[in-house]
């Protein structure tokens, strides 16, 4: 038995990337970013708001946080719903206390399902990003391009119906097809939160124009650290502040960099965890070297 002959052919073996969305650029060649008021680090916080239905197809894979026990898995349905009903308001209170504005990435179905929350978010001056249709409508390589475009258009229309015109896009489960950047850019989204290949935003080529990729950290994801990896709230908080200190220490050499991380309401919004968010926001908000920015403000500062 052997593999086909072309398995040992390497047609894209060349200097640079093996795709043409963006150029290879080692950090020595990166442009120096200057953040407002001489800040050294831009903290860009993203809160994902997810609808976890009782009956997900789980195809082609289960979204993180999806149902786990046989139907009706009310246990996981209600623990996820807690985030949208209770946890998100705890987040809003903490953000208001420290005068920090962030980007809420919203599953389109929540625009109606949790309309009072959406109103509270916009009233507090936060940015709204589109987060696909719901957690079971995944964008992935097996989708027909026209079908994916129809999904994105449907999301755009739902936001328009709610009086919202988001610039930023986050894919459910941060999963894309090869065509997703072209499709979301064509639908009017010029900021994307899925790719994290650099320390500041990178403009990606699409068929419809440039798509600015804000590097949201997967390694600092609160759900991953606190639930999957069972770390403590103190460890979570300390890691983000450690990243902040490191990025500040590099400022003289590399200029302003980005610290982008998630706050998942059903995770960090728990009563026993919210103290850590309060402590973290206090540290960031009182640090003159930190500029807290929404995704759009961050991209504007790089223009």
């Amino acid at each position: 038995m052997s593999l086909p002959e072309d398995y040992l052919r390497y047609p894209l073996r060349r200097r640079g990337m093996d795709q043409d969305r963006y150029e290879w650029r080692p950090r020595a060649d990166a442009p120096r970013r200057a953040w407002p008021n001489g800040a050294k680090v831009a903290a860009c916080i993203v809160a994902p708001l997810e609808f976890h239905m009782l009956n997900p197809s789980g195809k082609p894979f289960k979204h993180p946080g999806a149902m786990q026990t046989p139907y009706p898995d009310l246990r996981h349905y209600t623990t996820r719903d807690y985030g949208v009903r209770v946890g998100a308001f705890r987040l809003l209170d903490a953000l208001k206390r420290h005068r920090v504005r962030i980007t809420f990435a919203v599953n389109a179905v929540l625009l109606t399902r949790a309309a009072p929350l959406i109103e509270a978010i916009t009233a507090d001056g936060h940015e709204i990003a589109a987060y696909g249709w719901d957690t079971d409508t995944l964008h992935w390589g097996g989708l027909v391009e026209t079908e994916e475009a129809a999904r994105v258009d449907k999301v755009r229309a739902a936001f328009a119906a709610a009086g919202l015109a988001p610039r930023a896009w986050l894919s459910p489960a941060r999963s894309q097809s090869f065509a997703t950047p072209d499709i979301v850019r064509a639908a009017g989204f010029d900021i994307c939160l899925d790719w994290e290949m650099d320390n500041t935003p990178v403009a990606m080529r699409t068929a419809a124009g440039l798509l600015h990729c804000v590097p949201l950290s997967n390694e600092l994801d609160d759900r991953k650290l606190l639930i999957d990896q069972r770390q403590t709230e103190e460890e979570w908080r300390a890691q983000i502040l450690e990243a902040n200190a490191l990025l500040q220490s590099e400022h003289d050499r590399f200029g302003g960099q980005t610290l982008a991380f998630t706050l998942t309401p059903y995770v960090i919004g728990q009563p026993f965890r919210i103290w850590a968010l309060d402590a973290l926001l206090s540290a960031l908000a009182t640090d003159d070297a930190v500029w807290t920015a929404t995704a759009s403000e961050l991209v504007e500062a790089c223009a």
Binding site: N55, F89, D93, P116
Partner: peptide, 15 residues
């Protein structure tokens, strides 16, 4: 199978 059990209504925690 239901996507939403409809066992309770959405009710924001604030106020």
């Amino acid at each position: 199978m239901h996507a939403d059990p409809n066992l309770y209504d959405y009710w924001p925690y604030r106020d």
